[in-house]
Each structure stands twice: as C-alpha cells, then as structure tokens.
Nucleic acid binder design. Sequence first.
DNA 1: CCGATTTTTGCACACCGTGCATGTTTGCAT
DNA 2: ATGCAAACATGCACGGTGTGCAAAAATCGG
Lengths: 230, 230
Amino acid sequence: MRVMSERESARGGLRERKKRATRAALAEAAVRLAAKHGVEKVTVEAISAEAGVSPRTFFNYFASRDDAFLILDADAAERIRLAVLDAPAELTPLHAVRDALADELAEAEQQHELWALHAKVLRTAPDLLVRSLAAHVADETRLAEAVARRLSPGSGGPEAAAGTGAGPKDAEERRKALDLYPRLVAAVATTAVRVSVEHWSSRPEEGSFADVFRRVFDLLAAGLPAPAHV
Amino acid sequence: MRVMSERESARGGLRERKKRATRAALAEAAVRLAAKHGVEKVTVEAISAEAGVSPRTFFNYFASRDDAFLILDADAAERIRLAVLDAPAELTPLHAVRDALADELAEAEQQHELWALHAKVLRTAPDLLVRSLAAHVADETRLAEAVARRLSPGSGGPEAAAGTGAGPKDAEERRKALDLYPRLVAAVATTAVRVSVEHWSSRPEEGSFADVFRRVFDLLAAGLPAPAHV
DNA sequence: CCGATTTTTGCACACCGTGCATGTTTGCAT
DNA sequence: ATGCAAACATGCACGGTGTGCAAAAATCGG
C-alpha cells in the first residue's frame, strides 16, 4: 500500500496535478471547438488533438463525448461543499447553501471568457444544457452530506444522528427528518440555481442575476405561497 | 410490420395510433430486455427485434439507444398538466401540483408490473436514472404554463398578467413574479418527486412512498426551516 | 538509479447513429 | 372502389463512438 509523502500531499503531487490539467485541457478544448464549429461537428479526435493527448486517453477521463461539454470546473462543487461547512452557525441550512452558491456564481462571472463560451455552447444545444444541470445534480449527494453535517456537527454524517436528546419516538422522527431534509435542501437549492439561470438568461432585461437569485430563494423560504395571497 | 386492420378514425387516426403503439412497444421491449439481461447488454438490434421493427426504425422514434429506457409513458406529463388546470381553485399552486402528481404516481403503482421492472432497471443504472428525471424536467415548461394559467385564468399565459388592481409599480413587480413563480413551482415540484423517489427507494423501511411524498411537500410549504428550529 | 505503480497509447472490434434511395401503408378526394 | 400524395418503414453504406487488452512511458518512493 502506498503512503503519501509530505510534498505529494501538500498539493496533490505531480500525477494528480497532471490529471487535473489534462481533464481541464480536454474540457476547455471541447468547449472552444464547440463554440467555433458547433457541438455536433466536434469529434473526440479533434478534442484530443487540441488537448495534446490521444483519442484513447479522452475516454480515460470522460465516459462519453458529450460529457466533455457538461462541466467546466470539476472542483466547483467541492468548494461549495466546504463553504457550506464553514458557514456561520446562525444561518439556516437553506441560507447557508444560498450564500455558498452566490459566492461561487459571482466568481464564475469574473472568469467570464470561457464561461461565456460554455454558456453559448449550451444555449445552442438544449439537450446538453439539461444534461449539464443533471450532471451537477450528481454532486447533490455530497452537498446533502455537508448540510447534514451542519445539523449534527459531532457525527460523521447523517447515519449517526440518532439517539441524542429527546425521547425515543422524537429521536426516531428526527433521524428520519435528518435523512430526508438535507437531500431536499440540496436538491431544491440546485433546482433554484437552474431556474434562476434559465429565467435570467431568457429575460435579462428583468433585473440582474443576483436579483433573480435572491427572489427565488425568498420564494422558497416563504414556502412558495400563492402570489395572490402575498 | 404486422397488419392491424381495424376501424379507421376511432381516435386520432390509424397512423397516430400505430406510431404510439410502436413507440410503446419499443420502450417496453427495451425495459424488459434490460431487466432480464442488464442495460448494457441490450442492443438496438435486440430491442427492435423484440418490438417487431427494423433497427433503422428504432432511430425514427428515439434519438439514442438510451432514450428508450428513460420514459415509459409518454403521455403522463400531459395528464398531470390537465389535472393541474382542473384542480379546485382554493388550492395553492404548490398543492394543486402536489395532488396531481400524487394521483398519477398512485396510478403508476397499480400497473406495477412494467413500472417495477422500469424502476429495477433505473436502480441498477444511476446515470440513466438521472437522465430519466432530466427527461421529465423537459416537460417542466408545460407544467409551468399550466401553473401560470391557474394564476391568471383569463389570459393565454403569463405574459398578459399585468395591470390589475394596485399601482403601476406593484403591477410591474407582480408581472415579474408571475413569470418566475410558475417556473419555480414546476421545477421544485419535479425535484420533490425526484427526491421522494430516491429517498424512498434507498430506505423503503422508513415508510410508504406516500408518506415520504407528503413529508417532502410539507417541508417545502413550510419554507425548508432548519429542523432544530421546528 | 531501481522497482513498483499509475497513466498513456495503439490496436482491434462491436455498436451507435445518420443520409439516402426504395418499397409499403395510410388518408383522402374523386 | 380507385388512384394519388404524403407519411412511414426498411435496407444499405459509412463514419464516429466506446471498450478490452497489452505494451510503452511517466511518476513515485527509496
């Protein structure tokens, strides 16, 4: 069994860095070529050539050609997860997730060049847009774990949350809720981002993205009341 | 193809009925073969043979092999949409959608044979599960339109909802909300179904699906409050 | 620098997905 | 009924996708 050295664990070692670089290069090459020639005209061979690896290597990083277009920054989800864990304790889970997402999205807007191309590509390929959002949904489980950890800081996860405090019946109910609630918060927050992006990009004249984003989370926190009753 | 000599124009013409039958036969064949031999071992050739059409015809109905596994009943979304439009006016949009979904899901449970196979197939292929849910998301726009129509029955859609009652500033705000709100309700409701299914199928011992479903919508209607503060 | 481990690559091969030409079925008007 | 036009199914050819396998190259720890 291999033991990591000090230097390697510091920032992941050369191997891991190279792998990240290769993956990023493939994703960037895919997006740039797609923005230039159209998604359907981009072959795995062309992407690989642009990134400087063999076509066979492409499939060591992406399970399918389309996957290369779905996620630009594979580490964003991890940063969001850590931000949720570090959020002030007085925030509700929904608001902690909201703020973490808002920060990440604000940074993404600054590196606008590649992100703009990515958005352009996904805009011309609706099915890929859906799949891209679905791909982010796959990270939802880890986000749900972070939410669960916020709720019971002492435990290693949602599994070990039972049997503290109230009577056995309340504890059982609480355990169920803790299992379901984090998933729901993570899923709804992801959905909120999607709806915000879709709405904002279809009607940019109705306010900034931050506006839309805030309105969406306000509606969620209010329980989606019927507008007539607001 | 087999000859199906029946009365003409009974409902929608023979052509349309045959197309529906062919699509349903292909989807059913795909699911049954996948349940028997595993998703990855099922070729387009095998599906087509089981359904009694040529492999080339398969691609006249599904854009890709995987698409045949994603949606069993292509008409369910339309039924849900109509149920939302017909729901009692006193229900909030969220509850109208909830009830429509609950009815449809209850019916699906009764025709359990094929649906069980479908669930089994998707359970062994997580990526297909995500894509299946994403495929349903594609129907979300129509559901959002139905929600919008509930909110302004007289109009043809969310566009013409301005200018009733309050001052111009309120009207503007209300128009924005009406555009965003239906999308959000539809998206969140779809997400709620997904989370309910995933949670229930991963922990079937923690209650019936209807229980989970109800708990999820209760949490949503309450604005996803922090459990510790409940 | 060496041995062990990981990654890349070439090659072979099966399957996917599409354009096109062709034959067949359906709907409709006569 | 009969014939015509549109819609549909099919066979064929062909390029792109995706995988198993084994050899070569790169990296890591010592």
